[in-house]
Design a protein around this nucleic acid. Sequence first.
DNA 1: GCCGATTTGTCCGTATGTATC
DNA 2: CGATACATACGGACAAATCGG
Lengths: 240, 240
Amino acid sequence: MKARYDAIYRDIRESIENGTYPYQGFLPSEAELTATYDCSHNTLRRALGLLRDQGYVQPVHGKGVRVIYQEPERTTFTVGGIESFHEAEERIRLDAQTEVVALEQVTATPEISFRTGFEEGTELTSIVRVRRIGGEALILDVNLFRAASIPGITEEVARGSVYEYAEKDLGVSIAMSKRAITVERATARDRELLDLGDIDYLAVITSQTFDAQGILIECTQSRHRPDHFCFRDTAVRHRV
Amino acid sequence: MKARYDAIYRDIRESIENGTYPYQGFLPSEAELTATYDCSHNTLRRALGLLRDQGYVQPVHGKGVRVIYQEPERTTFTVGGIESFHEAEERIRLDAQTEVVALEQVTATPEISFRTGFEEGTELTSIVRVRRIGGEALILDVNLFRAASIPGITEEVARGSVYEYAEKDLGVSIAMSKRAITVERATARDRELLDLGDIDYLAVITSQTFDAQGILIECTQSRHRPDHFCFRDTAVRHRV
DNA sequence: GCCGATTTGTCCGTATGTATC
DNA sequence: CGATACATACGGACAAATCGG
């Protein structure tokens, strides 16, 4: 990314994460930072806004910008929050062995349309995958991709990263996603495909992903065994 | 709130929610909007940025700003996401009957300090509350408030909204919060206080809340019966 | 395929308001 | 009160993407 504000954001974030700007300390003032980065007031503020939104700093009017970032514990598989968009999926993919359970073409029925938001009759590629981590089947992913946007998904692609395929090979740009987290009782299929033991509830992330055009290109259900699930989030108060 | 960009954000958001700007349609161009709101390019862009961050719109370079907001179903108690900061707690409070199970003063032990992030020796007010909705005990809230920031919490206050008390009566301003969502097995206390039946897992929101100074003023665990829990979230891709 | 109009994206410089110390 | 620092807003400029002729 070439944007100035983004480079500044990343640079300051790096300094916070490596401890140059410690927890509960203050950043240099806007004036100093605009000098060191040789940028305008506006551009620096945009970078600071990103840091605030991501939970790294808390600007205090008339005083300074306080650092509130603390290293998160990484004992479980974290999704959301400070991590960037598909970083979590990436990390899971790296640590996990993926088994493709099913891969087929379907057409959106009225019921699918209602459940997913795809228009009725849309051609879809359906994938069911199991993620094994440390030999245990922990995550069941059920994806529906809009075939017109992401064509040519093979089992080969499904075993790796469909996102990487879409972005690198097809040039499709993923722009934003809406997620809902619920806790659901394990179904017969969950029990069959995952190593659940006596666990009968799963953490479920249901998400819709839109491309840069604002077109719905994917719906996913990611069903996690609860002892390996953690979702982190930072909420900034939108002043009232 | 008096900020121009905020007023514009709210006004456009309202028009999206009531259908004036329909799903998958385009907003008027920046030029038109700056004319109607009589504001600068920059100010309008800030409002549009908020709409994008909250998942209402998807700006498409060179084309326009597409509306991607869809009315969420309200079958369960939703927290997070498009809803503003403590709106969810507010709504729960209105619908729920709150029973205060415990209220006491404690001092942060090393263990509490490690678990919550409060400095060792900090004076805290501990509250345990059960939320009943439709006669069923569904949510168990365990709060730890920093007594120096929010003093004088009575059972009366605890039965209502501590946030309202802090903001309206004490003038404490809540600025941001970090949350983690996990799924945990029900403890003996959960079973005792909540109506769980044969349910043995709970959705747990663990959060830290910071004031406008960036000081940690509250830690909460909110333990929900899964069939009434839904957390919504919008993630905007931060271009790479 | 090129050009120009439209529209969003980024950045700058400046001015003013407001909170803290 | 004045100095410092963050918050908001304006107006102008140029870049980049899209679309139609």
